[in-house]
């Protein structure tokens, strides 16, 4: 793929940097980065929908589906191959979201939020009451292998970390591409005016369906990566409280760029470590107050502080100007 833009180049440059971090920084920090890569992808799934004006309070569903797809493959068939598990996670997310999409695509706004929540709680109910799957305790995953190679105990963590970085960066680049594509544009348009979309000859519902599936697949991949990183899964992954955290991350970091939710996840992870230590019973008060402050004072999220093209508003214009610049004379 040619004509990479700044964000895409940034991600490609970030990959070796990310891997270097993993090898140089202390282990406990790397663990947090590692885990945030998985949850970061779920936050990205939330962000992609938010760009189209759709707020999902149930993205944990696909986080969980990815995790359980990987976990069950290990439990039932003894599978532990990194690539195979990711493929399974994608397949599971794809199938479920394609089917559920027919229901969800009929809804918008608060109904979309509530129904996505309801659907995720169905899985929560099923998993919590299923004794064979460890009910609320969940179960463990076997150590990850790579095309038949099982790394030794001493390096397995590092190998998994590096292996996790790669799909995360690929997903981020692909999602960025998606947001720049005609369908990504339709997403923006969807948020603003559906009647016009229909009158342009496009099905708004189909557009919602496509966005829903894409968000689901990314989140499933996040679920697989997270499950492998932690080596454990449980139904909490699809509790609405987990899903709401992803919404929080998207609000906090802003939806102006795909990098924002990834950074936001990491930031939150670190803050949580300290906050829980200092004031264990006040963590939610902090999160809730920050969220209120962001909504009121920084509606485009933290990303708008570091970005020159603030959030949604000037996004296209910016790019359009860049695209037409070589021609000169236009004003």
């Amino acid at each position: 793929m040619n004509n990479l833009d700044r964000t895409e180049l940034g991600f490609i440059a970030a990959l070796p940097l990310l891997i270097a971090c993993g090898l140089l920084l202390p282990q406990w920090i790397v663990n947090y980065i590692h885990v945030s890569l998985g949850t970061g992808l779920v936050a990205l799934g939330v962000m992609v929908q938010m760009r189209a004006g759709l707020v999902s309070f149930g993205q944990g569903l696909y986080f969980c589906i990815g995790g359980y797809a990987a976990g069950l493959a290990g439990r039932l068939w003894g599978l532990s191959d990194f690539f195979l598990l990711i493929a399974l996670g994608i397949a599971a997310g794809l199938v479920v979201s394609f089917l559920l999409g027919f229901l969800l695509r009929r809804y918008r706004r608060i109904f979309y939020a509530m129904l996505s929540l309801a659907v995720s709680m169905i899985l929560f109910g099923l998993l919590s009451s299923s004794e064979e799957l460890g009910s609320t305790d969940g179960f463990n995953l076997p150590a990850t292998s790579y095309l038949g190679w099982l790394p030794g105990q001493s390096v397995s963590g590092d190998v998994l970390y590096v292996a996790t970085c790669i799909p995360t960066v690929i997903c981020a680049i692909l999602l960025h591409r998606f947001l720049r594509s005609p369908m990504g544009y339709v997403g923006e348009a969807l948020r603003e005016n559906e009647i016009r979309i229909e009158y342009l000859g496009m099905s708004a519902r189909k557009a919602v369906h496509i966005i829903y599936v894409i968000a689901a697949v990314v989140s499933s991949i996040g679920g697989v990566l997270w499950a492998m990183a932690l080596g454990h899964i449980d139904p909490e992954m699809t509790n609405w409280v987990t899903s709401a955290q992803f919404v929080f991350i998207a609000i906090l970091s802003g939806i102006g760029n795909v990098a924002a939710p990834l950074f936001g996840t990491l930031l939150l992870e670190f803050i949580r470590v300290y906050a829980v230590e200092i004031a264990p019973d006040s963590w939610h008060i902090i999160v809730g107050s920050v969220m209120l402050l962001i909504i009121v004072f920084l509606p485009r999220g933290l990303w708008s502080l570091v970005s020159s093209n603030n959030g949604l508003k000037n996004k296209f214009t910016h790019r359009v100007k860049a695209a037409s610049e070589p021609e000169g004379a236009r004003s």
Binding site: G53, F57, I110, V247, W283, S289, L292, I295
Partner: peptide, 17 residues
């Protein structure tokens, strides 16, 4: 409306603690 959902969610978190 959807922003208000987020606002009340934030309030919910505060109330929990």
């Amino acid at each position: 409306e959807i922003l208000m959902v987020l606002v009340t969610y934030a309030i919910f978190l505060v109330l929990e603690d």
